[in-house]
Design a protein around this nucleic acid. Structure first.
Lengths: 178, 178
DNA sequence: TACGGCATGTAATCGGTTACATGATTTA
DNA sequence: TAAATCATGTAACCGATTACATGCCGTA
C-alpha cells in the first residue's frame, strides 16, 4: 500500500483546498479565500471560516503541513505534502459522478402555480438580471490567453446563456395578459 | 405582525418539504421521498433520512401538523398548516439569489494540468455518458401534457445540452495526439 | 497616534450524512 | 410460512454556517 492515509474519503472541500494549494502554491487561509473567489468560487462556494478549519484537518491527516510565521501575524502557511499530492492525484483519476444544480429560483418556479403569474414574472426578471451580470463578468474574464472553451469558464459561459434563454422563455410564457 | 413564527429563516430543505406537501397534498415521509425523486430530486438531492427529520422540525414550529395512524404501521401523515402555507408563500415571493453548479467534474478539470491529457479524456468521456443518459431521461419525461419549456424540466434539457457540448469540446481540445 | 479597513482566527450551533435497526406486506 | 422487498424510523457523527472576537497595517 502507498503512504497516504486512506481515512474515509474526504469531502469535496478537502480536495478543493488541496487542489488550490497545488495550483497556486503554498499559502495562508486568506490566500485560499482569494484564490477560491477568483476561480472555483463561481460554481462552488463555502464560507470563509471553512478555509481555516479544513486545512487544519488536512494537517492532522498529514496531507498538508503548516509553518507558522515567527514574526508579525504568526499566520500559518500551508504546503502540500507528498501524501497530499498523492491523494489528490488519486482523486482526480476517479469518476466524478453527476453534478447538482442547486438553484432556489428553479425550486420556487416549481412550487408556484398558475395563479402566481405576477410572482413568476418578478422571479424571472430578477434571475435574468443576475445571470446577465454574471455572463458579463465571465466574458470579461475570458479576455487573457484563455485559448479554448475547454475550461470551466467555458462551461460557465454556456450555462449562463442557457439560463438566460430559459428565464426569457418563462417570462414569455407568462406574458402580462393585459 | 402575522401569525407565522418567524424563527430564523429556514433552510432550503424545509421549504422543499413544505412545497412538496403543498403541491402533492398530505403524505408520509416515504411519500415525500417518492415525490422528490420524481421532481426536485433531479437538481437538489438529499438523503432519505432528512425527509424524516425535517418534517418533525416543521411540526415543532407549527408549520406542519402530523397525524399518526392508529392501525398498522402507525406512520405519520404530514399536512400543511395555515402558518406553513403562509411562510411558504412568503418565501416564494422573496428573491432567490444565485444558483450553484456543484460539479465535481468541473473541479477535477480545473485542478488538472496539461500533463493529465489521458485523465482528462477519461473524465470527459465519463461525463458525456452520464449527461447523455440524463438527457434521454428528461426527453422521456417531457412526453405528457407539458406545454411550454417554461418549467424546471425545460432548464434541465437546456442544461444537459450545454453540458454535452462542453465536454465534447473538452474532448476535442485534448484530442489523442497520435 | 488614532482610525478604518484588511486580515485572522475560534466557538457554538445546526443541518446533513452515514450507519444502524426493525416492522409490514407481498409473493413464492 | 419463509423469503424478499418495501417502508419506516433513530442515533451518532461530522461538516458547514453563523457569530463572535481580535490583531495588524497603512494612512491621515
Amino acid at each position: 500500500m502507498s503512504g497516504a492515509s486512506a481515512s474515509k474519503s474526504l469531502g469535496p472541500s478537502a480536495y478543493i483546498v488541496l487542489g488550490l494549494v497545488k495550483l497556486f502554491g503554498p499559502g495562508t487561509s486568506y490566500d485560499l479565500k482569494r484564490w477560491a473567489d477568483g476561480s472555483v468560487g463561481y460554481f462552488w462556494s463555502f464560507p470563509r471560516s471553512q478555509l481555516y478549519a479544513e486545512p487544519q484537518r488536512l494537517v492532522a491527516l498529514g496531507l498538508l503541513d503548516d509553518q507558522q510565521e515567527q514574526t508579525g501575524r504568526r499566520r500559518r502557511v500551508y504546503r502540500l505534502t507528498p501524501a497530499g499530492q498523492a491523494i489528490l492525484t488519486d482523486w482526480l483519476g476517479q469518476p466524478a459522478g453527476f453534478p447538482e444544480l442547486r438553484d432556489l429560483g428553479l425550486l420556487k418556479l416549481f412550487f408556484s402555480t398558475q395563479q402566481d403569474g405576477a410572482r413568476i414574472r418578478q422571479l424571472a426578471t430578477e434571475q435574468l438580471a443576475l445571470h446577465q451580470a454574471r455572463l458579463t463578468e465571465y466574458e470579461r474574464l475570458r479576455a487573457p490567453g484563455m485559448p479554448s472553451a475547454a475550461h470551466p469558464l467555458g462551461m460557465g459561459l454556456l450555462y449562463e446563456r442557457a439560463t438566460l434563454a430559459f428565464w426569457d422563455e418563462v417570462l414569455a410564457g407568462t406574458a402580462d395578459p393585459t
